[in-house]
Design a protein around this nucleic acid. Sequence first.
DNA 1: GTGAAACATGAGTCAACATTCAAGTTAGAA
DNA 2: TTCTAACTTGAATGTTGACTCATGTTTCAC
Lengths: 216, 216
Amino acid sequence: MGRVEAKVGAMHNATSPSNKVPRTERGRRTLAKLLEAAAAEFGERGYHEASITGITQRAGAALGSFYTYFDSKEQVFRALVSHMGHLTRKWIAERVESAPNRIVAERIGLEAFIEFVRAHKDLYRIVMEAQFVAEDAYRDYYAVFEEAYRRNLAVAGERGEIRPGHDEVRAWALIGMNVFLGLRYGVWDDSLSAAEVAAAAGDFMAFGLTPAPKAR
Amino acid sequence: MGRVEAKVGAMHNATSPSNKVPRTERGRRTLAKLLEAAAAEFGERGYHEASITGITQRAGAALGSFYTYFDSKEQVFRALVSHMGHLTRKWIAERVESAPNRIVAERIGLEAFIEFVRAHKDLYRIVMEAQFVAEDAYRDYYAVFEEAYRRNLAVAGERGEIRPGHDEVRAWALIGMNVFLGLRYGVWDDSLSAAEVAAAAGDFMAFGLTPAPKAR
DNA sequence: GTGAAACATGAGTCAACATTCAAGTTAGAA
DNA sequence: TTCTAACTTGAATGTTGACTCATGTTTCAC
């Protein structure tokens, strides 16, 4: 399961304000342990079942130490959601950059996404649950993906790599496909390889449902 | 917002066992009021924020009456999820049955789905939240859809209406597209008409991203 | 070496419900 | 009409868990 770097605690954007930044080495270690523990606790038990006690016990810290670094239960959760966004994009971007065109990139991106989800089931659950715990963080998470998809589709469109179309709607269609295939084949069931799923879905993304015209 | 028929209380499948069935007219009315109130309360506040007190107040009933009809908070929630599955499938099936082929059916189905979500935002939220409140109910919900999609794709494949492919993966890809387009354009934003979204996504479902070959 | 700022600790506070139950009221079959 | 099962009521119970705080310990800049 993915290590949650202490870096998360140092972010200072709109969705995860003011986690106190530790000033000593000891503090940084404690913060890192707490973040990792929080990811595990939320991932395994879900936001509401998770308890601060559970987090501090996993971290080997005292209950009160949690509040040295976080203002509330919800705040760590938000930090984790935001962290997950960065991790996911980094992972996928690294694998997709060598793709020769957008259509191949989508297949590779899906394969990478499924692999990522399998390697971070706990963190992925946190992202999905954000819809009900911190809806704005959830929307932000997908807004960034939407933006990236639209840009990618627009560029590919100009290059003639893809069919013209409604990029915003196609962006969300692609996001939905990725998320549900990630849930079904990444979280729920490992029996198909990521490559197999990506190949099957890649054909669909490339050619849709319309049959190839008859050879004559 | 959708009326929740008292019928829900009479179901007796695995996911919603033993809600007590009322024996008098008064009882049936109270049960119906409670179900409707529960849908509104869960839909507006989410499962954990929702309270039984909130439900009975909306229903104009006493707190204790809730437990005359339901065993627990979770049980009403499950009943509502299951109910939503039936409503959704009925709504879509009615609109899709006149479609001449599978590809058109998918476009019409998406349009109907977006309309349905818009008309039942509260109930739809309940379904999505089920992933974290009653995971088995959530899986069951989508298992039924998967089954239907696979059958539809298999039949269409035999008829040569669609390209051969991996029907299970395509089923989940389609489900994901529908769910996310429903969330984005049904729940979050009404500015595009359902037909516009369905037209744009329909083109993608039909032809994918590959550009049309150059006319010569 | 030292003292102030950082950090750690965990018992205690407090509010929020889900659920129970004993005491009533009403419906409707006979 | 009568009587019992069905239904209603809301105060009381009990648990849970986020968050506070006063006290103690460690770090590290000087």
